[in-house]
Each structure stands twice: as C-alpha cells, then as structure tokens.
C-alpha cells in the first residue's frame, strides 16, 4: 500500500517539479569538472540577489539599462569551463544539458555546428505562450564547455538593447529559427 502511494506521489510530484523548474537548467553535474578546468566561471544569481544588485544601481546611464533588465530577469546561471586538454568532459555532461533543452517549452533558435573547428553553439528560448521566459546558450568546443541560462522574459531583442555595454556586441536579432550546420 505504502509503495503504491509513493509511486503515485512520484508520478504526481515529478512532472509538477519539472514544470516548476521552468526555464532554469540544472547544471550541478558540471561542478565536478571545475577542478579539472584551467579556468572556470560559476555564476548563480537568484531573484533575491538580483533584487539586491538592482537596488544599488542608479537610474541613469548604463546602469539604468541594466536595472531595467534586472527588474524582469528572475535568475542568471552560468557555467563556463576552459580546459588545457581535449576530452576533459564527456558527451554525457553535454547530453544532460541538452536533454533538459528538449523539454516542452524550450525552442531552439540557432545552431552553429562547425565540424571543422569542432565547435557547437546552440541558442534556445523558453516560451510561455507567445512570450519569452528565458534563454539558454550552450557552447561546446574541444577544450571548452559553456552554458548560459537566463531565466525571465529576456530574449535576443532585449539583450540587443544592452549592446555596446558589458561586452555585448551587436546581436543577430532576426536570427533564423532553424539551425545552420557546416
């Protein structure tokens, strides 16, 4: 009887937690690679931290644009790992991220797969109806693995508004919906 109840709970709670996760990707499995990386960046900014950061931003100039962006964003999560050798990470490490990006809600906007350079860049958008609810950028290179996950209504158009600031170049706002492969 207890097992049956537990199974029903798993069936009911499992999908609910997946939905609650929304546009946020689980990247914890990449943490083990940080010790092997020559350079690693681990950024996890939750809504409370964003609110705190926003509170100390001025409402003028460059800071105003950032403040307006942070007002909508619900979280920023980045794992960037640069290695000194190839194959420091496994395909399973990459697949565990890509599996999450195949979940309903995620739509792939751009794929750049350069076989020559061994480089794969994918950009995904999380959709809530017709609105964007998040962004994910996956970069897989022989000696680098980077995942950027921005939770909240930030699409490429809004990111383009920040161009010229924070090292963001002019962006392909009208990016083709499907990927392009070399």
């Amino acid at each position: 009887m207890k097992i049956t109840i537990a199974m029903w709970l798993c069936l009911l709670v499992g999908p609910a937690s997946a939905l609650a996760q929304g546009a946020r990707l689980q990247l914890d499995h990449l943490d083990r690679l940080a010790s092997e990386a020559a350079q690693s960046v681990n950024i996890a900014i939750d809504p409370a931290m964003l609110k705190l950061a926003s509170a100390f931003l001025k409402a003028e100039g460059e800071q105003a644009a950032l403040k307006a962006m942070l007002a909508e964003v619900k979280g920023i999560y980045v794992r960037s790992l640069e290695f000194e050798r190839q194959n420091a990470y496994t395909s399973d490490d990459v697949n565990r991220v890509r599996e999450q990006l195949t979940a309903p809600g995620w739509a792939r906007l751009v794929t750049v797969d350069s076989k020559r350079d061994g480089e794969l860049v994918e950009i995904y958008s999380w959709r809530q109806g017709t609105e964007s609810g998040g962004l994910a950028i996956l970069v897989v290179e022989p000696m680098e693995l980077t995942v950027v996950n921005i939770v909240g209504p930030l699409d490429l158009t809004k990111l383009a508004l920040l161009q010229g600031n924070f090292g963001i170049p002019r962006l392909p706002v009208d990016a083709p919906p499907a990927g392009r492969e070399d």
Binding site: V41, I43, I45, I76, V78, S80, V112, E119, V121, I123, L135, I137, V139, T146, V148, I150, L156, L159, L162, N165, F166, G167, I168, P169, L171, P172
Partner: peptide, 11 residues
Amino acid sequence: ALQIAGEKLAV
C-alpha cells in the same frame, strides 16, 4: 554573465 553571453552570441 552578460559578457560571456555576449561573447558567445558574437561567435
């Protein structure tokens, strides 16, 4: 984070 995102989008 925005800088990293920007660099990757530039690629």
